[in-house]
Amino acid sequence: MITLKGINKTYFGAVPLHVLRDINLHIDRGELVSIMGASGSGKSTLLNILGILDNYDTGEYLLDGVLIRNLSENRAAELRNRMIGFVFQSFNLISYKDALDNVALPLFYQGVSRKKRRLMAMEQLDRLGLADRARHLPGELSGGQKQRVALARALITNPSIILADEPTGALDSKTSCEVMQIFRELNADRGMTIVIVTHDPGVGEQTNRVIRIVDGRIAPDQ
């Protein structure tokens, strides 16, 4: 599903920062993987590259057989929309839209009709047990509910992978467990490929494979 070959990334600031050094990584379809590393290890940069939010300098990135390189903004947006479902630490829901509209938003950018996308969004919310919260604004939802809405939004386009950036970082431990449970179910029942970036070992433990990043390199498997 994901193949990285010799990925390098340097940020050219006042002092050039070589954040990713020769990353080689393969993730199969249906894997539940966590990427762990300390702050500044380069794990967020890796996630941005995986999510087509950032470019890399050298190497090769294949996502579901598509070479991700030198894409136009439009093509990148389209691939993000169709192949990747994002889940963020701070949920990143749009505050003035209710849960249903938030979930339906990716379909808006696909040009799906309003009626159809609201139907699909309702279905997603229902699956995640939020049908009764559909008309609530994000501000009226609990942290766990918000993250489930964000998950529904990530899932609605039926993406190839789910990329989650510290999905439990803003949640208490009980809610964290619930959210992780959902990730595990998605992986087990629907065969979703899921990549979770985290620095929380508790989260890492619940995934099937842990990739450790140290100083921009992948640490050998233990």
């Binding site: 439009n74 947006a77 389209e78 994002f86 950018y109």
Partner: peptide, 11 residues
């Protein structure tokens, strides 16, 4: 956020 979930610049 909109760009991340698939909004094109034109959108």
């Amino acid at each position: 956020i909109r760009r991340a979930i698939g909004a094109r610049p034109l959108d």
